[in-house]
Write a protein that binds this DNA or RNA. Structure first.
Lengths: 358, 358
DNA sequence: CTGAAAGCGCTTACAG
DNA sequence: CTGAAAGCGCTTACAG
């Protein structure tokens, strides 16, 4: 069969060139608007492109192209077993997969409890040249300022963790924090008496406000309680990250107050902190719910101290952030602007199957 | 900088060839075990490959390769909104992704309630030439026979849905059905009195036995109850697929018997069938738990008739089955022999985020 | 068994 | 502005 007229054959640049009576170089220039093409040839090539369905072979394109794309990420630093480590894993996986496709990923980290360190990391990042960025949105205002800067430079960026309205992010990957908060309330209210109290733990660090995500979770939590006729009291405890002695003292005080506490919750990934206390004091009547499958949280769940963990596929968030930018840079594709992860509920019986492998 | 010694540079076939003192053709033959390589050169090339981290450029490979691979799948047919439709979606997604890489997927379907239709679909499939297969294992014995045949032809195959021991499947993708059964028991026992009864519904079809998966879920369910001091009775109802009148009659009888039913469960994906009854009769004291996020089940969950659905990422099962074969065919990679999906718990508050998109 | 060469469909200098 | 040619990293006949 005549190969050039096989209708099932994909048409290539050389086919277009032949049909237009020009060289492949000229066709390439037209396709990519690189200029330096005469009026006449432009007309001829466009004429052909209008009638044939030319679909560039992207595989060939990326093999031939020597253009390198650099993606930077700006996320909290994390030790093994911590929440953000899973996000990093996802980013790393995507980076490894795309590295053959002219994509380079460079990661910048900050201390999630320290806004100053965010500025520092951001500065280091901005000193580099890059074509796209992934930004964890923990510090709202600084992220908005950074977004303006990137807008000006026409650099696409993706938000991670929680979304910020009114910005020009290419995409957001994360959960609907408000509903994740409602789920914690639902899991607790199923277990406790309508009138019993709930302990709400917050981690205090150097005068910071809660992140957007934590605020939203809390709002979803409280709204659910209100809508469902909860009649107990929320009792607050402000705890510290690595200070058991202090935390035990604070919690001793809270539990000494009048009122029966049957539920407990933390809105960040540190439910192992009150968990440690509940376990030590054998307060098994207190149902603790937390967020994120970190090593310590999962152990507490297996142990029966935590009754449920709510998770949001951090590895996927990292992975798909990079993938979205990769698709944008290489193929000009746009992903959905908002990409909400499933909200996973882990209990003792399914925790061991939750490996983020798929 | 000397390009050949730039450590950040990915090493290519030509680099390996140079280091081994052979041609790229020889390296290619070694990498792909194509034979026709002398002992000595084999040794030299393997020696180099052992010390350098050669990662083939898949883009270049698929651009150059003219070999086409055919994968067949043998799964139950499904209407939109049904369980197996999600598996098909995953298969389709993987097929679309790999189609540029010389992979062609052809799907064969059978009626999951009719063993004869399995034989028919299998026959149609075996008439084709193919390089690998995905097999849903609903009918155990026929699948074992088919496996023997494929073994003889040295065609790799992947199992889907439930695993069968003692076979030569390349991989299995699915859940640990036993534990998925235990989870249903856990969700129910949290809600009902220790001594109340549980309605167990089974769908009857033309003299079939339950599938392996359903048997295992049931075993996990019963074992959990026993271990946790459940003191009520399991009350069985045998229902039909599209026969509400009949089902209502059967269930009327069951509920007329003495004993308080507070829980209900189905071990396949049709909990909407008893759900319909419970809703019509306003039996809101009965806590119904089911499997799989099908359209009708999800609606029942949103409606409050079903309290929880247990799901197993059907889309991923389909997707990764194809991917596993793709990796095997193109790169000779072996995936894990057993790949257990996370077991997801869906309630009213997180069902809307469970889209299997990621 | 072995290597040199052509080719996959594109991009990219480069000479004219 | 234009086209011929080299090259991206592989695979695939093919001659020896």
């Amino acid at each position: 069969m005549d190969k050039t007229s096989d209708p099932t054959k994909k048409i290539r640049i050389v086919d277009v060139a032949r049909m237009a009576g020009v060289s492949v170089g000229t066709v390439d220039r037209v396709i990519h608007n690189r200029g330096r093409v005469s009026e006449e040839n432009l007309r001829k090539v466009k004429g052909v492109l209008d009638i044939v369905d030319y679909q560039p072979n992207l595989i060939a394109r990326s093999l031939a192209s020597r253009k390198q794309y650099r993606i930077v990420t700006l996320t909290p630093e994390a030790a093994p077993g911590e929440y953000w480590k899973d996000v990093h894993k996802g980013i790393g996986k995507a980076a490894a997969e795309t590295t053959g496709y002219n994509i380079h990923v460079e990661n910048f980290h900050f201390n999630q409890y320290d806004a100053v360190s965010f500025d520092r990391a951001q500065t280091a990042m901005l000193e580099k040249e890059f074509d796209a960025a992934v930004i964890a949105t923990l510090f709202t205002e600084p992220v908005i300022r950074l977004s303006r800067l990137l807008d000006k430079r026409k650099i696409p960026y993706v938000y991670l963790d929680s979304n910020i309205a009114g910005q020009n992010q290419l995409s957001y990957f994360g959960t609907e924090s408000y509903d994740a908060g409602a789920i914690a309330a639902r899991l607790l209210t199923e277990k406790i008496a309508r009138t019993s109290d709930i302990l709400v733990c917050r981690i205090i660090h150097s005068g910071e406000n809660d992140s957007t995500q934590i605020r939203n979770r809390k709002k979803g939590f409280c709204d659910f309680l209100e809508k469902n006729g909860y009649a107990g009291k929320l009792r607050y405890a402000h705890l510290r990250l690595n200070d058991d002695a202090y935390n035990f003292e604070v919690l001793d005080k809270v539990f000494a107050e009048p009122g029966k506490i049957e539920g407990a919750v933390t809105f960040n990934s540190t439910c192992y902190i009150p968990g440690k206390y509940l376990k030590a004091k054998r307060l098994s009547q207190v149902n603790l719910v937390g967020y994120d499958v970190t090593g310590r949280n999962a152990d507490m769940l297996r142990d029966g101290v935590v009754i449920a963990l709510i998770a949001q596929r951090p590895e996927y968030q990292g992975y798909y952030s990079i993938k979205a930018l990769y698709e944008k840079l290489l193929f000009g594709k746009r992903t959905d602007k908002v990409n909400l992860m499933p909200i996973d509920i882990l209990i003792r019986e399914n925790i061991d199957y939750y490996h983020n492998k798929f």
